Structure formats: structure tokens, C-alpha cells
Simulated scan of single mutants.
Amino acid sequence: MKFQTEYGEVEITVNAIRRLVYLAVLETYGPISIGSDNWFSRWFSSEEGKIKVEEDEYGHLKIDIFVEVEFGTKVTEVGKNIEENVIHKLRAFANCENPEVNVHIIGVR
């Protein structure tokens, strides 16, 4: 992802975006762990690697986050809070406008 500032061009890698999303999820109340949609990824990748970040040719981001939530929390509220926190962090730190954030609740513990 590239954007222009008055001082020059800034490029942010997909891995940096993934790390920023991971930290935003950790700051949100409710999720216990970041999971994945398939068993192979659950066993053989780090939690940060289980966040899918895709960028299209126009620079728009699509982010899929797979989380397990704490028992007793409102699942819809946790998903909404994660989405809002991720969008806020991406706008503030990475200058991303209107990223598509999809939160998938894969379990309750």
C-alpha cells in the first residue's frame, strides 16, 4: 500500500498492516484467541498469521479476522468492537480509508 505525503511517498507492507490489525484485536475486550477457518492453519501458523489481509489493484484493503470469544460476552458486540477498533487503528496509523473488515467468530470458550 502506497500513499503520498508532502515529504514523499510512503509504502506500508501487508505484514505491517497484519501486525497493526493483530495489535488492535488484542486491545479489544472479548476475544480470547485469534483462530483460523481451517485445522491446518490452526496447528501450523502463528496467531498473527491467521489474519488475512488482501490488497486490490486500487489500494483498498480487505481484512478477515477469525477469533474465539469469551463465554458470557455478547458476540455481536465483540465483533462490532473489533471491527471499529481495527478501522480506527488503520485510519490513524496507516492512512487507510474505508478498509473492509470482516470479523468471523469461530468459537466461544
Rank of each mutant, 00 (worst) to 15 (best):
V67P: 00
L26R: 07
G35A: 05
E84R: 13
T76V: 12
G72K: 07
E83H: 15
N102W: 01
Q4K: 12
F3Q: 05
E47W: 00
I106V: 12
A94Y: 11
E100K: 07
A92N: 11
E27A: 11
V25F: 07
K89R: 15
N98Q: 07
Q4V: 14
R18S: 04
W43N: 03
E9G: 04
K89H: 14
I32Y: 01
T5D: 08
T13N: 05
E68G: 05
G8F: 03
H104W: 11
W39V: 04
C96I: 15
F3V: 09
T76F: 05
A92P: 02
F71V: 05
T73L: 01
E9K: 07
M1K: 13
E83Q: 14
F93P: 01
K74D: 13
E54L: 08
V14C: 01
F66Q: 00
S36Q: 02
A92K: 12
I65D: 00
L20E: 01
Q4M: 15
G59N: 06
D64Q: 06
E100M: 11
T28C: 09
E47I: 00
I105S: 08
N85D: 08
I87E: 14
P31G: 03
I32E: 09
G72R: 06
V75P: 02
S33M: 06
E97P: 02
F71C: 07
V108E: 07
D37T: 03
F3M: 12
A92Y: 11
L26N: 09
H88M: 08
A94M: 09
F44M: 13
A94N: 12
F3D: 07
E27V: 02
K50M: 09
E57P: 02
V86A: 03
E6H: 11
I105V: 15
V75Q: 10
I106L: 11
G30D: 01
G59I: 07
L23Y: 14
A24P: 08
I12T: 08
H104G: 10
T13R: 08
H104D: 04
A94R: 09
P31M: 04
R91G: 15
M1Y: 13
K2C: 03
E27H: 03
I65R: 00
E48D: 13
E84K: 15
N98M: 05
E27R: 12
K2V: 07
S36P: 04
I82D: 00
V108M: 10
H104A: 12
R109P: 00
A16V: 06
V103D: 00
R91E: 14
P99F: 05
E11N: 13
H104Y: 12
G8E: 07
V67D: 00
Q4D: 12
G35I: 01
D37V: 05
E83K: 15
A92T: 15
R18T: 05
K74G: 10
E97W: 04
S33R: 14
K52V: 12
H60W: 02
I65V: 09
E9I: 10
L26G: 06
E83G: 13
Y7T: 13
R18A: 03
A24T: 10
G30T: 02
E27W: 03
D64P: 03
K62M: 06
K74A: 11
G72P: 02
K2E: 15
Y58F: 06
H88K: 15
